[in-house]
Design a binder for these strands. Structure first.
Ligand SMILES: NC(=O)c1ccc[n+]([C@@H]2O[C@H](COP(=O)([O-])OP(=O)(O)OC[C@H]3O[C@@H](n4cnc5c(N)ncnc54)[C@H](O)[C@@H]3O)[C@@H](O)[C@H]2O)c1
Ligand SMILES: NC(=O)c1ccc[n+]([C@@H]2O[C@H](COP(=O)([O-])OP(=O)(O)OC[C@H]3O[C@@H](n4cnc5c(N)ncnc54)[C@H](O)[C@@H]3O)[C@@H](O)[C@H]2O)c1
Lengths: 223, 223
DNA sequence: CTCAAGATGTGAATATTTTAACAAGAGGTG
DNA sequence: CACCTCTTGTTAAAATATTCACATCTTGAG
């Protein structure tokens, strides 16, 4: 295995790691001890060549004529995703979507935890949702530090997105998942990822309409 | 402009169209009548070369030394996304997330409408959420036909995902947005798109940890 | 131990996507 | 009208990503 310093993980690979990890855990729970790239391929609907290529970036994880050891793979991907360290997350905007996220709280992922919630609406403050108390925005900076929070999820309306992201950044957080689709400005070192449900839906419908029934446009591949 | 039959829209381009469309509408609302690819680039954080290349797939939409006419672009993208036709959507699984989606109901997109909701839990049946009544699963097939529904959003637990998707497919729907991350089997002609919040969060955190602070891994580009 | 079957890891080919760079054309000014 | 400025659309190059296909290795059976 190459030294970590020289590894360049392709972006496309990085995005698939959590999927691999999730399914490996499922397999382990079902008592499966080894898996071949072809079998895994069928399960997760990713071509086996892509799986093998992806895995190969992290070393020689399998054995010819045998496949991969499920628990070893889990060990490897667990290290890559650093799942042994609890990720303490703040949620900002305890509205409809925020409450749904709080109630779910990444149940199946023991190391992902929403530990704080913030809102600007005085009526929300003090409410307890699935064990998490909603606090005023003014408490954020201090709590982020005190609670060791590293990540934020923003579910505020688009109109307040930039303002809220500014506050999140100011609190020292460097990773933000934003459900408001409007692009906001963040400093270089801050990673922001958008979850844009409307766009996903529109793209889906567009592809359905144009790829399947009315053959006006064609697409080169799927996602 | 090439005839529609010979156009091949790259997948990467297709996924950006809704973003373009959304921002163009916003610009128009702000009274902006023309836009240059460089200005647009700053706004949506997509390189101007990518924007121009994307646009070029749909013809010569702009004018040298001038830029693009906002209302003309809106016209073009509106046709591409077929926004003049109402998309009637069914939501299956009126739980926490389903309710959030119902309450929001793609407010800003006049042509996207969740018109029906279904759930298996008898206690949910009959509840009205933001004007939409929750119905039993047994009503789905008939209502999908009667209401002219073409798209479904599934927000049921992973454990029932395949079962519910089967029912959705059986009702004649060919486009499914699935919030349960487990990969399900669907017939060839059915398009399914997953919204996998845990994966998005894990990828974000992974990139934040490895790209920014601890330089163990590097990534080739961003998303 | 030998061998057939079968799977990995990877070079090489292919496909897709992004980016650079600029010729050609349009706009606006004097 | 002549000219300078600016921006598009596109050609070509570079960067990424996927896929093929097979040499090589391992297993497990006999
Ligand atoms: N709910 C959905 O189905 C859905 C679908 C697509 C996109 N979205 C996006 O997700 C975001 C949240 O949606 P929602 O339905 O939960 O909205 P919501 O109105 O129910 O909740 C928003 C919450 O943010 C709080 N808030 C407002 N301004 C704030 C500020 N400056 N600081 C802190 N908190 C503030 C409000 O008090 C409220 O509790 C929106 O950007 C929306 O566009 C939601
Ligand atoms: N809520 C979140 O923040 C969140 C985050 C990540 C992923 N998800 C995923 O989204 C999905 C929904 O999450 P949720 O929090 O809304 O769950 P939930 O339990 O609140 O709601 C699920 C709903 O589905 C209904 N249902 C169950 N089985 C059904 C069946 N066979 N047919 C029809 N309806 C059925 C239930 O009655 C319930 O109303 C889950 O797959 C979950 O993994 C949710």
């Amino acid at each position: 295995m190459k030294t970590e310093e020289e590894i360049k993980i392709p972006n496309a690979t990085a995005k698939r790691i959590p999927l691999y990890y999730r399914y490996l855990k499922t397999l382990q729970e079902s008592g499966v001890e080894r898996i071949k790239s072809k079998e895994f391929s069928q399960l997760i609907q990713v071509p086996s060549a892509t799986i093998r290529r992806d895995f190969s970036h992290f070393g020689e994880l399998g054995r010819s004529g045998y496949g991969y050891d499920v628990s070893y793979l889990i060990e490897v991907f667990s290290n890559i995703l650093n799942t042994k360290v609890e990720k303490r997350i703040a949620l900002v905007g305890a509205g409809n979507l925020g409450k749904a996220l709080l109630n779910n709280n990444f149940r199946r992922n023991e190391n992902l935890n929403i530990v704080c919630a913030f809102d600007a609406n005085p009526e929300m403050i003090g409410q307890k949702i699935n064990g998490v108390t909603v606090r005023p925005m003014s408490d954020m900076k201090e709590l982020v530090r005190k609670e060791g929070i590293t990540t934020a999820i923003s579910t505020v309306p688009s109109s307040h997105s930039q303002e809220v992201v500014d506050q999140i950044v100011d609190s020292g957080i460097t990773a933000i998942l934003n459900f408001a689709p409007g692009r906001v400005k963040v400093p270089e070192q801050v990673k922001i990822q958008y979850i844009d449900l409307t766009t996903e839906l529109q793209t889906l419908i567009y592809m359905d309409e144009n790829f399947t029934s009315r053959k006006h446009f064609n697409f080169s591949n799927q996602d």
